[in-house]
Structures are given as structure tokens and as C-alpha cells.
Design a protein around this nucleic acid. Structure first.
Lengths: 205, 205
DNA sequence: ATTATATATGAACAGTTGTTAATATAAGCT
DNA sequence: AGCTTATATTAACAACTGTTCATATATAAT
């Protein structure tokens, strides 16, 4: 079956191209990661790439798509249940965010995002939507429930969510930069938890 | 005098090159802003650029240096005076930060910084040092004084400074992205003040 | 075994890149 | 005036870019 072939060796090469491209894009940016460099790292000639992708842009878009397929899945029920208990909701969120920060694959994606953020309009919009709005929505849902249960001071849930996520992002950015240069992240490794504690002490009733 | 010449027409062209380069680097990144594009925009041939700069890298480094010559000047005495009154210290800082965010020149610089942050080690180090450490130092100095005067809850001043500056940075990033696409920043224009108020309510005694 | 399909190769294309060399121009100094 | 210096131009270089071509190879389907 021709389908079998495509699923085996075919998509194997295609998958390797995407993996290599992700690394190179995140290290060199879109312009810096040339088609030839990608092909060489994969182990084929550059012309062979065009059997799998229409052009360079298509490789990039497929890689970029992966940035936003976050393995960050909390169900609506889970939010309800955790938020009723207050701090555990934030703890769970923080731990997942921290894991993403130190996950090798997600680290590459985050770098790529930062590199191309200023040069790719589509990426900017996706950043706002998937990276910001989605987290704000999830968090403010939790804060809203906490307020209903008199666990935290009354306030605008979206405002609190914004305050919470912004620091998380900043810590992530700093850690990513340090790891890029293979520097120690010791000083920052507990920053997520510090933020969590500081924040909770301030909003709790 | 040969010195006069250099000061007049000579540095005039050099200054124009730096201005054009700043814009182009911040729009297209280091690779995207080619020597020919810069020269064309200045109004000379690309070879004439080499009368003013050794190579492209030197143009970039001179531009990049401008990023960190922040017009952000609070004297030690001013810190002392303002911090003793508590919130006014944070207000002054926030207003200055907001002004930088909306200043056209600083906006270009910030974009350039974001673009090259992942690709230029020297820039990363300068970012950490000038952008982060300096602000943390300035803020924590203020928070320390506030604690001594029993204006805010006792805590680690650097920790509070970190919490404060991270949200400021995030707001700035979001506004810069919106302005890049000429989108409205209405929803975010008061975010700085909201952050200030939220933060002050949480730390004050 | 023959045919079809997927995927590889090597060579070439036209355009762009950073940089340099030879040369022209114009202004300042003596 | 003539000489020096700064700055411009034109032309070219070697290297690299994204992409396409004709062609080879290997695997799967008939």
C-alpha cells in the first residue's frame, strides 16, 4: 500500500526534517536556518526536501504550529475542583508551567517564538491568542471560583490573572536565556514557587 | 580644520547611518537588514558605508549600545526622598517606564532587543545586566526604605522588586507587539496604572 | 517481471549577501 | 596655486540564498 510507505519511511524523513528544522530555527532564526543547513543535518540534499515540503515557508509554518499545541490540559471539571481549594489550583498551574519551561522540546519552541515574534505577524497573533488569552481565561476562571468561595479578596479576576501570568512569563524568559548560554539557573529555579507563595499571600482572604 | 569636517558633514552621514540602521534592524533583524538596504535608505552606495564603519557588525554594535543608554535617571537622593513617601516612588517609576514604552526611539530599541535576544550572546548579557539587574537594584533600594519606614509589609526587597518589574516588562512587550501591527493599545494603556494600584494595595501596611 | 510511485541525487539558475579595489570628487590646509 | 584628506562612486569578487531541473534508485502494486 502506498499509504503504508508514506507512514513508514516517508513520514520518517519528514518527521526528521521537522525535528531538525525546529532546532535550527530556534538557534539561528528563520533567515539563519538555511535550506541547505537543514538538509545537511537531516542527511539529504536540499533538493530532496522539496519532496516533503512545498518550500521553506511551509516547513517553518509546520514547525511554528507545534509551538501552540500545548500539552497543557486542565479540564473544566479539574479547574472547578482545584479552584474550590484555592492555592492547589495555582500550585498545579505553576508546576505545569515550570515543567514546560524546562522541557527541552518546549524550550526550543519558546526560543523560536521569541526570535520570530517581531518578524512574523501570524506568530504575533497566535502568541496573543494561544499564549496569553488562553492562560488568562484559564486562570481567571479559577480566580472567579475562589472569590465565590471567599478564598481570596474580591477583585477583577482577569486583572489578577494578568498579574499572575506576567511574572511567570518573565521567569520563563530569563531561565530560557540562561540555559541558552548553558549558565546555571540555580538562582531562578525556585523563583516560580517564590512567586506562587508571594502571590497567594497577597490575594488570599 | 580636519576635525571640523568630521564633526560636520562626516558625523552627519554617520549619524544618519545609525538612525537608519536602528530602524531597519528593529524591523528586519540583523540578517534581514542588509548593508545595501541600509545604504540605499541613507542615500549612498554600500561601499561608502565602509568609510564610516569597519563592517556590518560594527554598525550593529554601535546601534545596540544605544539600547542600554537609558534616559532613566533617578538620583540616589531622589530615591531616598520618594521612597520615604511610599507609593509616589512606584508612581514615578511606573510613569517613566510607561513613557519609555511609548517613546518611538525606545520602541525601536526594544524591538531590536527582542529580535536579537536569542541570537546575540552579548545582547543577552547586557539585557540581564542593564535591563534587569539595574531595575531590580533601583526598585529594591526603594522597597528597603519603605520597609524601614513601616510603609510596606516586611519581605525580601529584591523579591518584591522582581515581582513588580516582571509585570511591567510583560505589559511593555504586549504593547510593543500591538503597536507593531498598528493595532489599538487602548485596552492596555491603563494596565501600567492598574498594576501599580494592585501591587501597592498588596504590599502596603 | 513490469509498471508506477516515492524519494533520492547532482547540477544549475538567478538573485542576494558582505566586502574590497580602483577611481573620482570635493573640501580644507599650507 | 598645489597637496592632503575625507568621502563618494562604479565594478567586481566569492560565497550563499531558495528553488527547479533532469535523472537515478529503491520500494510497492499489478
Amino acid at each position: 500500500m502506498s499509504q503504508n510507505k508514506e507512514q513508514n519511511k516517508g513520514s520518517q524523513t519528514k518527521q526528521k526534517i521537522l525535528k531538525v528544522a525546529t532546532t535550527l530555527f530556534s538557534q539561528l532564526g528563520y533567515k539563519g536556518a538555511s535550506v541547505r543547513k537543514i538538509a545537511k543535518e537531516v542527511g539529504i540534499r536540499e533538493s530532496a526536501l522539496y519532496n516533503h515540503f512545498k518550500n521553506k515557508e511551509e516547513i517553518f509554518l509546520e514547525v511554528a504550529r507545534g509551538i501552540f499545541t500545548s500539552p497543557f490540559t486542565i479540564t473544566h471539571d479539574e479547574i472547578q475542583e482545584l479552584a474550590k481549594r484555592g492555592k492547589p489550583f495555582l500550585q498545579k498551574f505553576t508546576m505545569q508551567y515550570k515543567m514546560l519551561t524546562f522541557d527541552k522540546s518546549n524550550e526550543s519552541m519558546f526560543r523560536l517564538l521569541m526570535i520570530e515574534l517581531m518578524q512574523n505577524k501570524e506568530l504575533r497573533e497566535q502568541f496573543m491568542h494561544e499564549f496569553h488569552d488562553k492562560n488568562i481565561k484559564l486562570l481567571s476562571e479559577g480566580f472567579f471560583i475562589m472569590m465565590q468561595n471567599n478564598l481570596i479578596k474580591s477583585n477583577d479576576p482577569m486583572m489578577i490573572a494578568y498579574e499572575f501570568i506576567s511574572t511567570m512569563f518573565y521567569i520563563r524568559l530569563q531561565i530560557t536565556l540562561l540555559r541558552f548560554d548553558a549558565k546555571s539557573t540555580n538562582a531562578l529555579s525556585t523563583q516560580f514557587e517564590k512567586h506562587l507563595d508571594f502571590f497567594w499571600e497577597n490575594i488570599k482572604l
